[in-house]
Amino acid sequence: MNAIHCENVTKRYPHFDLKDVDLTLPEGSVMGFVGPNGAGKSTTLRIIMGLVHQDAGRVTVLGHDMPAGQVAAKWNIGFVSEDMRLYGHRTIGFHLDFLRRIYPGWDDGYAAELLSRFELNPDQKVKGLSHGQRVKAALLTVFARKPKLLVFDEPTTGLDPVARKVILEEMMRVMEAEDRSILFSSHNTLDVEQISDHITFINQGSIVASDDKETFLDSWRRLRLVVGDRYRLPDMSGLIEVQRSGHQIVLTLAGYSDALQEKLTASGAAINEVQRLTLEEIFIASVESSRQPPHAAAAGSAPSMEGAAA
C-alpha cells in the first residue's frame, strides 16, 4: 500500500512547468524531497495536498484521488509549509483549542508533552515567537492530530541545530508506527540523509532521480585511478563526471559495483581509492548531470582526454 502515488503529474505556469512527476511513497516510510529553490518542491507538495490542482496526471493520497478526494484524505494528513503562519494575534493555545474541536483523534496529552519538549508556552501570542518557535508550534499542531501522513515543506529551514534535532526526533518517533508516513522537502541534505528511507531529487520541474536511500548511497562512488599514457576509459553506464589531470583520473559514478571495479582494473587502470559520496555531493552531481545528458558529459570530456594523452 502506498501513502502517496503520483503519475505523470503536470502543472503549467507562465514561467515554470512541473513536468511528468512520478513519485511513490510506500506506507510506513519517510521520503526526503530534495531540490534547489524554485525546482517545484512546494508545487508538488501542494498538488499532493489538493491545494493546487494538477493540469494532467493522477495523484492518489492515502487511497483517495486528489484533488477530488481531498476532504477524506486531509482528515489524515498533517501539512506544514514554510509559508504557513498561525494567527499572529492569537495564542498557541487558541490554535490547539480550535484543532481539538475539529479532529476526533486529537491527542491532548501528546500536545502537552510536545509543548514542554518544544519549550513552548501555550499562553504566548504567535507574533511574539521566534522563527524556530513558530515552526515548532506549527509542527505541534500537526503532530497532535496524529495523522497517517505528514507532509512538511522545508520543516527545518532556518532552524538552529538544537531545534532541528528536536524536530527530527519527533519525526522519527512518528515512524515507530508502521502505518504512518512522512514526505518532507528540504535543501538540508544532512537532515534528508539522516532520516529518509527514500530520496527524490527534483530540478527545474522534473524528477531527476528517486530511489531508496541505501541504494542511492551504495551506488554512487568517486574513484581515483592512476593510468598510463595511452589509457582509454572503457564504456560504462552511470558515468556522471570524468576529470583527468596527467596520469590521474577521477570518476564520479552512479552505478558502482564490484564488476565495474574489475572492468576498470582489466582496462589497465590502477584503482587508488574508492570513496563514498555524501547525499549533498550526489545531489549536486545529479543536478549538474541532468542539465546536460550524461553521455554528452562523458563525450565532452573524452576528446580532451585523448588530447592529454597525445
Binding site: 534535532k165 522519527m172 532520516i195 536511500k213
Partner: peptide
C-alpha cells in the same frame, strides 16, 4: 527496527539494513 530508528533518529531502512 522502528524502535531503534526512533532512538537513533536514523531512517528505518538504514537500521533494517
Amino acid at each position: 527496527i522502528r524502535e531503534l530508528a526512533a532512538e537513533l533518529k536514523v531512517s528505518v531502512i538504514t537500521v533494517k539494513r
